[in-house]
């Protein structure tokens, strides 16, 4: 019997042989099966999100009457009333508070992680190994363990009920994961360019700013994205350190509407949840290209 490689290549005009038709049918069946399976699994995974968006346009009464996501009598009352909140402030205030936490924290993280990672990746100094091990050890330490000592520390400094406990640890490269990620990325970048800059007369700081940071950009965008999304979703941090409602971020405000209302206005909560999801999604899709580049080249190369 002839092997597949022995079959002569046919020109397009000639009708396909029985073997070719059989192969094509097999490939088609396989594709249909694979794509159907992927679509079903994908839908199952994304359905809660679709339901969330659909339910935010339902009335409170309709919410639990059916599992379908399509509202029978679509209304935006959930959005309007949810926005007003039961507090003296609108949800806009809580969004502003969230941004007040996120933006300085993200900027601080990017700057501090770059400085610390650059130090670890490029310089030799006494105790480097021990310090690096310490950084990695904090990466493995569960957050909960440090909560109480941190709380006591910030209470003694007098930073409770301010954004400082949320900003300062990140601005001092407290997020070991990001430091580690940037170090890995830096290790994959050859040193030649930095040496060329030094020969060109650049100081260490100039080399960092003009040469290293532009090359690190994909990694830094990933760092900022992660920090943005994680801070947006952070509930425990603000819950511990912030007590005044006027300083609440979105994550606490959503919980607030559950606490204060006897009969929960679920449609309002869901409507505000949809809005709370929006910033992360928008930022993610805007920076998606760099994000993938940043996390994929961090560990693979070098």
């Amino acid at each position: 019997m002839a092997a597949i490689t022995d079959i002569p290549v046919r020109k397009g005009s000639e009708p396909p042989t029985a073997i070719e038709l059989k192969h094509r049918r097999k490939a088609l069946r396989s594709s249909i099966l694979r794509y159907s399976l992927l679509t079903i699994v994908g839908l199952i995974m994304i359905y809660p999100l679709i339901w969330l968006v659909g339910a935010s346009f339902k009335t409170n009464a309709e919410m639990f009457s059916s599992a379908g996501f399509w509202p029978k009598n679509p209304t935006i009352s959930g959005y309007i009333e949810g926005w007003q909140t039961s507090t003296p402030y609108t949800f806009g205030r809580f969004f502003v508070n969230t941004m007040w936490i996120i933006i300085p924290k993200t900027i601080g993280t990017a700057i501090s992680c770059t400085l610390v990672a650059y130090g670890f990746a490029r310089f030799e100094f006494p105790g480097k190994k021990f310090l690096f091990m310490t950084v990695i050890a904090t990466l493995l330490l569960p957050n909960v363990v440090t909560r109480i000592p941190q709380y006591l520390l910030f209470r003694d400094i007098g930073w409770l009920d301010s954004f400082l406990p949320l900003w300062v640890p990140s601005a001092l490269a407290g997020d070991a994961f990001f430091v580690f990620m940037v170090i890995q990325f830096l290790r994959a970048i050859p040193r030649d360019m930095e040496e060329a800059a030094r020969v060109d007369g650049a100081t260490t700081l100039q080399t960092l700013i003009y040469i290293v940071v532009p090359m690190l950009m994909p990694a830094l965008i990933s760092v900022c994205l992660f920090q943005f999304m994680w801070t947006m979703n952070d509930f425990l941090g603000p819950l511990i350190y912030i007590s005044s409602v006027e300083k609440y971020p979105v994550s606490l405000a959503l919980k607030l509407s559950i606490d204060t209302t006897e009969a929960f206005a679920w449609n309002q909560i869901l409507a505000m949840s949809v809005l709370a999801l929006a910033p992360s999604l928008i930022v993610f899709f805007m920076a998606q290209k760099y994000f993938i580049e940043g996390i994929s080249s961090g560990g693979v190369k070098g």
């Binding site: 050859p190 030649d192 360019m193 060329a196 020969v199 060109d200 007369g201 650049a202 003009y210 040469i211």
Partner: peptide, 15 residues
């Protein structure tokens, strides 16, 4: 930068 030298690298090392 203060030695009065310029260097051409094996991998070009262009920015």
């Amino acid at each position: 930068g203060k030695r009065g030298i310029a260097m051409v690298f094996q991998n070009y090392a262009l920015y």
